[in-house]
């Protein structure tokens, strides 16, 4: 049976893992590759590196980290953040990433999804979508960390991404992100039920029970987790044990 995936996400700035981008006052908490390896040994199913570095010069650092990560990791690695062109895609993949996630660049230039999918295969094209309710309560696509409403309807955009050749959707609820009050079940459901490609739920995870809930109440394929693991509030093993107790099929190591 296809397993539900647990994916730790590491936000990286200046070569270091930092606390979630929505928390005030970024503090680095360590080396991304060390973190990723630790999570792999705890039975993470994949790893996501999100480069939140602003400047062009610092791009070299992230490539170096991807290369080290690809050397050390025996599970798939997705890299996102600041990818704008086909050439960015190529360079990230060449550094050793297995998948590349694109966000605002896809909104600005949807053909990028198709071009990347044609050149590298749909399996490595992850479209990250930041969803948020507008004043009327409609789900819209936002960019710039939830500050800018693109006016695009969330479900329509997710469907279009699939049509254009995306292999997977990474759906973050900007309403839930940083709240630690649980995944946005309604939003996740809405997208999952309207596309036929895997969806990773993201934003809002504050406890093991939140992860159980998102898998019980939606048909999402994976859950993205950040602070819960970084702050050592739970280990991946503990999460998976609880999921198993709730009859959710997950991969275990030596169990």
């Amino acid at each position: 049976m296809l397993r539900k995936r647990i994916i730790p996400c590491l936000d990286i700035k200046n070569g270091k893992v930092v606390k979630g981008i929505n928390f005030v006052g970024l503090t680095d908490i360590g080396d991304p590759v060390d973190y990723a390896k630790m999570y792999e040994l705890q039975c993470a199913d994949e790893i996501v590196f999100l480069d939140i570095t602003a400047s062009y010069e610092e791009r070299a650092i992230i490539k170096d980290i991807i290369e080290k990560g690809a050397n050390e990791l025996r599970i798939p690695l997705t890299v996102g953040g600041g990818i704008r062109t086909l050439n960015d895609f190529r360079e990230i993949l060449k550094s050793g990433a297995d998948k590349v996630s694109i966000n605002s660049a896809a909104v600005k230039n949807p053909e990028l999804i198709t071009e990347a999918s044609k050149e590298f295969g749909a399996q490595c094209v992850v479209v990250a979508i930041d969803g948020k309710r507008d004043e009327e309560g409609n789900f819209k696509v936002f960019v710039k960390g939830g500050r800018e409403n693109t006016g695009l309807d969330l479900v329509e955009w997710a469907k279009k991404c699939e049509e254009l050749g995306a292999g997977e959707i990474l759906l973050t609820s900007m309403d839930a992100d940083g709240t630690k009050k649980g995944y946005d079940i309604e939003m996740t459901k809405r997208v999952v039920e309207n596309v036929n490609i895997p969806v990773i739920a993201s934003g809002g995870c504050g406890s093991i029970q939140d992860i159980v809930q998102v898998f019980k109440e939606t048909n999402c394929d994976a859950a993205l987790v950040a602070s819960l693991f970084h702050y050592k509030e739970a280990t991946i093993d503990e999460v998976k044990e609880e999921l198993e107790k709730n009859d959710i099929s997950v991969r275990r190591i030596n169990k």
Partner: peptide, 10 residues
């Protein structure tokens, strides 16, 4: 079912 068949399977 969803395609690609993506993830861990037995």
């Amino acid at each position: 079912e969803k395609l690609p068949h993506m993830g861990w399977n037995q």
